[in-house]
């Protein structure tokens, strides 16, 4: 398995990746509290972006409603903790199952009924919106008044109930991000990974080569949904409050997918690079505006939108592919050497 993980990866890339990991592990000792919260946010988006990337980047199925799965994971774990004091780790399998099931139902209906492309994307938005309004009216989970997870005691880190300091949350999300990267790497090099990419590139051709495209698209949706709901559990216990209006809204879904799209769709490092860029940019803007003394709500977002526009127009494949070339990490394109 380890051989599969590192095969094909240029040595320099491996070294850079390990250096980055070392820096991230050491970061809480070096940075202040504010930067730590920024790093947590970056890793959260890197993890969630990786999860979304399975569906769109690997299998080519555009979901614009992934906030749905974040919300389902968040609400499942938070509600069970709130009502029964259940540890999120115990709720985890249920949260994954709920999200996976909802993803499966949506996939089953969409793929069986031939809903594809733009229509599929809009279906995912519609289901997320449906959930948003539904949760707004579901009093057991607090409805529109919100669900509050009993607040953490910052002096004591309790990994079992996920109550603790930002530093603990930082290491949890770092571990998740690393895990997601490894899982995605293994997936991409597996039968499923090859089949997903084939479906993404040309579904008819994939079928002609013996790929059961329906089944593999379902795998992608269910896996992506389940992985995303894990991000939701983190979200719920990190922020301690959940409002349907904030959790399920389309803005959240878009936030999740900016990273992988800006970073480089379908690549493994893209979601991570994208998360650093997008969140870093947003926070840097925020700081810069504060320094200059502009405190207009919306000003940051306008600039953010402009940056997004420029990146999308200038780098159609995202930042990572050209960056990879710049770092001299491109996979070899010729020669018969068996990798």
């Amino acid at each position: 398995m380890i051989a599969t993980l590192v095969a094909d990866v240029p040595r320099r890339g491996l070294v850079l990746l390990l250096l980055l990991l070392a820096a991230l592990v050491a970061a809480p000792l070096l940075v202040n509290d504010y930067l730590l919260t920024v790093l947590i946010l970056i890793l959260y988006f890197a993890y969630a972006g990786q999860a979304w990337n399975i569906m769109m980047g690997f299998a080519g199925q555009l979901s614009l409603g992934h906030a749905l799965y974040v919300g389902l994971g968040a609400y499942t774990a938070a509600a069970l903790f709130f009502h029964f004091g259940l540890s999120p780790w115990i709720s985890l399998p249920l949260a994954l199952a709920v999200s996976g099931l909802v993803g499966a139902i949506m996939g089953l209906l969409a793929f069986r009924f031939g809903v594809a492309g733009v229509y599929f994307a809009i279906l995912t938005i519609a289901v997320a919106e449906f959930a948003r309004i539904g949760f707004d009216h579901w009093s057991w989970v607090g409805g529109s008044a919100g669900l509050f997870v009993p607040v953490a005691n910052y002096t004591q880190n309790d990994l079992w109930t996920l109550r603790g300091s930002p530093r603990m949350f930082y290491y949890v999300i770092l571990a998740l991000t690393v895990l997601a990267l490894l899982v995605c790497r293994l997936l991409l090099k597996s039968r499923a990974g090859y089949y997903w990419q084939a479906i993404r590139e040309d579904e008819d051709a994939a079928r002609a080569l013996g790929v059961n495209t329906f089944r593999y698209k379902m795998y992608a949706v269910v896996l992506s949904a389940a992985m995303t709901s894990l991000a939701g559990i983190f979200f719920a216990f990190y922020y301690n409050n959940l409002f349907p209006e904030q959790v399920f809204t389309i803005g959240r879904s878009i936030e999740l997918i900016l990273g992988p799209i800006i970073g480089g769709l379908g690549t493994l490092i893209g979601p991570i690079v994208g998360a650093f860029l997008i969140t870093g940019l947003a926070e840097a803007l925020h700081e810069a505006m504060l320094r200059i003394g502009i405190d207009v709500p919306g000003a940051k977002q306008v600039f953010y939108g402009v940056c997004l526009l420029v990146v999308v127009m200038a780098l159609p494949h995202g930042v990572w592919p050209p960056l990879r070339r710049l770092l001299g990490l491109d996979p070899k394109t010729s020669g018969k050497g068996k990798a």
Partner: peptide
């Protein structure tokens, strides 16, 4: 084969053929 060729444009030539070979091979 398709009259109008349908390569998996974004994949390498080798990966294109691996997708086909997985039909009868258990491992990648």
């Amino acid at each position: 084969t398709f009259q109008v060729v349908k390569p998996f444009a974004g994949l390498s030539v080798l990966d294109n053929v691996i997708v086909g070979a997985l039909n009868t091979h258990r491992t990648v």
